[in-house]
Simulated scan of single mutants.
Amino acid sequence: MSHTAHIPSHRKPRQRASKSALRAGVAGGVLSTIAVAGAAGPAQAEAQAEPVTQTIEMPTITAGLSAAVAASAEATQQIALDLEAQAHEAAAAKSAAKEAKKAKAEAVRKAEAKKKAEAAAEARAEAEAQERTERASRTAERTTLSAPATASTGSSSGNSAPASAPSAAPAPSSNASGSAGAIVAFAKAQVGDAYVAGGTGPNAWDCSGLVQAAYRSVGIDLPRVSQAQSTAGTQVSLNALQPGDILYWGAAGSAYHVAIYVGGGQFVGAQNSSTGTVQRSMDYDRPTGAVRVL
């Protein structure tokens, strides 16, 4: 027996190959894990340091909103068009009413002018008819008066031959009667016209302007103012008036108002701004005197 046989050995016993391989595999895996962790560490830290910039997409509502805005704009435009149309219609109606009022006023004016012209023509016709009647009456009177004179002359001469009749005296001028009738007709045709101080027609008068125009219609020129017109002719009594005579209020030569006597106790005159041109009874405002121009 060897002298070392009973001495215990200090060497470790051999391990099996499989266990050695296992240990080698575990060690390799740990080292790999450490290496991977070491490599990933800086990248992970860098990734954590970078801010998140992720974009979130919101739902799209542009189509519906655009349609609503378009519909609202269209409605607003329609309202504006309606208001504009209403404004045009109102303006047209106002203009039409104004034109109608103007046309009506013009028609009334023409109707009044026509009425006055007809009244003046009727008055002239009546005056002419009266003048013809008076002329015929005067002719008949002259014939009646000349017949006895002729018979008397024939008897006194003793001759059988008829004596020539003496020439008749000139007949009174008929212009006075005819002119008076025309003056009266003119004055009556102005009844209803306005009174305007200084007015000389054709649709507005003052008192002396109307008298002057009436006499001018028969070719007679009178002074313009009432003071001068009150002495333009022969003074006559208010109890012996004839149509066409000039009536005056106030003293002769300083009269403050004049008018035309139209017969039947009435006169026509441009009185004042309240009454205008009127035909009134002399009892309405008794004149002071009268003058006869014709």
Rank of each mutant, 00 (worst) to 15 (best):
M1C: 15
T4C: 10
P8D: 13
S9K: 04
R11I: 15
K12V: 15
P13S: 07
R14E: 10
Q15C: 09
A17H: 10
S18K: 03
K19T: 15
A21P: 10
L22T: 09
R23G: 12
G25L: 11
V26I: 09
A27I: 06
V30W: 00
T33M: 12
I34H: 01
G38S: 07
A43V: 14
A45S: 13
A49V: 07
E50W: 04
P51L: 02
V52N: 00
T53R: 02
E57H: 13
M58A: 13
P59Y: 06
I61K: 06
T62F: 08
A63M: 07
A63G: 13
L65C: 11
S66I: 03
A67D: 12
A67S: 14
A68F: 07
V69C: 13
S72H: 11
S72Q: 12
E74Y: 05
A80S: 09
A80H: 02
H88P: 15
A90E: 10
A92W: 02
A93W: 01
K94G: 15
E99W: 10
K101P: 03
K101I: 14
K104V: 15
A107E: 13
K110P: 05
K115H: 15
K116S: 14
K116T: 15
K116R: 15
A125N: 04
A129T: 15
Q130Y: 14
R132G: 10
E134W: 04
A136M: 08
S137V: 13
R138W: 10
A140N: 07
E141A: 12
E141P: 02
T143F: 01
A147E: 08
S152R: 03
G154W: 07
S155L: 05
N159V: 05
A161G: 14
A163L: 04
A163W: 01
S164C: 06
P166V: 00
S167A: 08
S167H: 03
P170N: 11
P172W: 02
S177A: 15
G178I: 10
K188Q: 12
Q190D: 07
Q190M: 06
Q190V: 08
Q190K: 06
V191S: 02
A197Q: 09
G199M: 03
C207P: 04
S208H: 03
V218K: 00
D221R: 04
P223W: 00
V225H: 04
A228N: 05
Q229G: 04
S230Y: 00
T234C: 05
T234E: 04
A240N: 14
A240G: 09
L241Q: 05
L247A: 03
L247K: 01
W249V: 01
G250E: 00
G250S: 03
A251Y: 00
A255W: 00
Y256A: 06
V258K: 00
V258A: 01
A270W: 01
T275W: 05
T275L: 12
V278A: 07
V278L: 05
M282H: 02
R286D: 05
